[in-house]
Computed example of a mutant assay.
Amino acid sequence: MAMSDLLSTEEIKAAVGAFSVAESFCYKKFFEILGLKKKSQEDVKKVFHILDKDQSGFIEEDELKFVLKGFTPDGRDLSDKETKALLVAGDKDGDGKIGIDEFITLVAES
Results as ranks from 00 to 15, higher is better:
residue 43 D to S: 06
residue 66 F to E: 04
residue 92 K to V: 10
residue 25 F to R: 01
residue 56 S to Q: 07
residue 3 M to D: 03
residue 103 F to I: 06
residue 17 G to Y: 03
residue 34 L to T: 05
residue 58 F to C: 10
residue 9 T to I: 10
residue 11 E to C: 12
residue 96 G to P: 12
residue 109 E to G: 05
residue 26 C to H: 12
residue 9 T to H: 10
residue 2 A to T: 13
residue 14 A to T: 08
residue 48 F to P: 04
residue 6 L to G: 01
residue 28 K to E: 07
residue 78 L to V: 13
residue 65 K to R: 10
residue 91 D to W: 07
residue 91 D to F: 06
residue 109 E to N: 12
residue 95 D to M: 11
residue 82 E to F: 01
residue 87 L to P: 02
residue 22 A to T: 06
residue 34 L to D: 02
residue 1 M to I: 14
residue 7 L to N: 02
residue 62 D to N: 15
residue 39 K to C: 07
residue 31 F to A: 02
residue 110 S to C: 10
residue 65 K to T: 05
residue 4 S to K: 07
residue 34 L to E: 04
residue 23 E to D: 12
residue 84 K to M: 07
residue 97 K to M: 09
residue 33 I to K: 04
residue 20 S to I: 14
residue 75 G to V: 07
residue 101 D to R: 08
residue 109 E to T: 09
residue 26 C to G: 14
residue 80 D to I: 04
residue 57 G to W: 05
residue 63 E to H: 10
residue 40 S to A: 07
residue 86 L to T: 06
residue 26 C to F: 10
residue 71 F to T: 02
residue 56 S to T: 09
residue 23 E to Y: 04
residue 86 L to E: 01
residue 82 E to R: 05
residue 57 G to Y: 09
residue 37 K to E: 04
residue 50 I to W: 06
residue 49 H to G: 13
residue 49 H to K: 15
residue 44 V to A: 05
residue 12 I to S: 03
residue 66 F to A: 08
residue 38 K to M: 10
residue 67 V to I: 12
residue 76 R to W: 03
residue 84 K to P: 07
residue 27 Y to S: 06
residue 83 T to V: 06
residue 29 K to E: 03
residue 98 I to V: 12
residue 32 E to K: 14
residue 74 D to E: 10
residue 19 F to I: 06
residue 38 K to N: 12
residue 91 D to C: 08
residue 53 K to W: 09
residue 31 F to Y: 01
residue 59 I to K: 01
residue 42 E to G: 15
residue 62 D to A: 15
residue 16 V to N: 01
residue 97 K to S: 07
residue 42 E to P: 07
residue 59 I to D: 05
residue 78 L to H: 03
residue 33 I to V: 09
residue 11 E to V: 03
residue 67 V to M: 04
residue 83 T to G: 06
residue 102 E to R: 07
residue 19 F to L: 03
residue 55 Q to G: 11
residue 66 F to G: 05
residue 79 S to R: 00
residue 72 T to K: 06
residue 23 E to K: 03
residue 110 S to T: 06
residue 108 A to Y: 15
residue 8 S to L: 04
residue 26 C to I: 15
residue 101 D to T: 09
residue 108 A to L: 12
residue 21 V to F: 13
residue 84 K to D: 05
residue 88 V to Y: 10
residue 5 D to F: 13
residue 106 L to M: 11
residue 30 F to W: 04
